[in-house]
């Protein structure tokens, strides 16, 4: 079943602070994602893998084309939908594991991981329970759960981010380098999480540096280089 369809998507950045330089990234992307897929975005650094993923999440604006997402019984165009609808898609349908952890200082790690569930309407204690299971799987020592992750090491922050992304069983998941900076043991845990999600029918898009990770979990690859736009000058 089709979960996401991007049509004729193009992106360019206009840098007003630098003499309005226009940087075109890619154009005419057509992309489809089905239930149970795990598609790896590939292409050289700078080709726009992260940019495309951020556009799917509506974090970056899409100037051209449409990116439609199956949201419950409806289809929502992430390019043209009003903000509160996009937020609803993010709350219910689409999870995003980014490379950065952006949280309010002072909030406990357990609550940060439980947050997406609470936003879906799950009761606080149930949400915390599931967050605890996830943190334990990702080997975050229980002693740290009550602390803010802002004091953690890079690898720990990354794992908190992954826990937060996988805690809620979204129908669609976006993974931006989820295994970077993880040791072998934790990388295996993440691969398990991805495999389990696929089995559940989650549709995933990922950026993975390691070829063996791609081979282990991805159902296909999508090379974004093919859509490189021609920059003027």
């Amino acid at each position: 079943m089709e979960m996401l369809r991007a049509e004729n998507v193009g992106k360019s950045f206009t840098l007003h602070v630098q003499d309005s330089t226009v940087i075109s990234v890619f154009e005419h992307i057509d992309f489809t994602l089905n239930k149970g897929d795990c598609i790896a975005l590939t292409g050289a650094s700078g080709a726009g893998k992260s940019t495309f993923m951020r556009m799917i999440y509506a974090n970056y604006i899409c100037q051209e084309g449409s990116i439609r997402v199956r949201h419950g019984a409806d289809w929502v165009d992430m390019v043209s939908a009003p903000p509160h609808e996009i937020l609803d898609v993010r709350r219910q349908t689409m999870g995003y594991v980014s490379q950065f952890l952006r949280v309010i200082p002072r909030v406990a790690t357990l609550d940060i991981v439980a947050d997406p569930l609470k936003a879906m309407g799950v009761e606080v204690e149930v949400a915390r329970g599931r967050a605890a299971v996830m943190l334990r799987r990702l080997n975050i020592p229980e002693a740290l759960w009550s602390l803010s992750p802002l004091t953690f090491s890079g690898g720990e922050q990354q794992r908190v981010n992954i826990a937060r992304g996988f805690v809620a069983d979204y129908p669609i998941m976006l993974l931006d380098e989820p295994t970077a900076s993880l040791d072998a043991g934790n990388r295996a845990v993440v691969l398990d999480l991805i495999t389990e999600a696929k089995t559940r029918g989650t549709a995933l898009i990922g950026i993975f540096h390691d070829e063996d990770v791609r081979e282990a979990v991805c159902t296909s690859e999508f090379d974004i280089t093919k859509f490189r736009a021609v920059n003027d000058g």
Partner: peptide, 30 residues
């Protein structure tokens, strides 16, 4: 959740907070 950027009494850009902050379009927002 959502942000409006004002300059000189006018709203020059508005949208999802992370969109406006991570991919600002208007020269002043940038």
């Amino acid at each position: 959740h959502r942000l409006m950027v004002m300059q000189g009494g006018q709203v020059v850009e508005s949208g999802l907070t992370d969109q406006v902050l991570d991919d600002p379009q208007h020269p002043y927002s940038q």
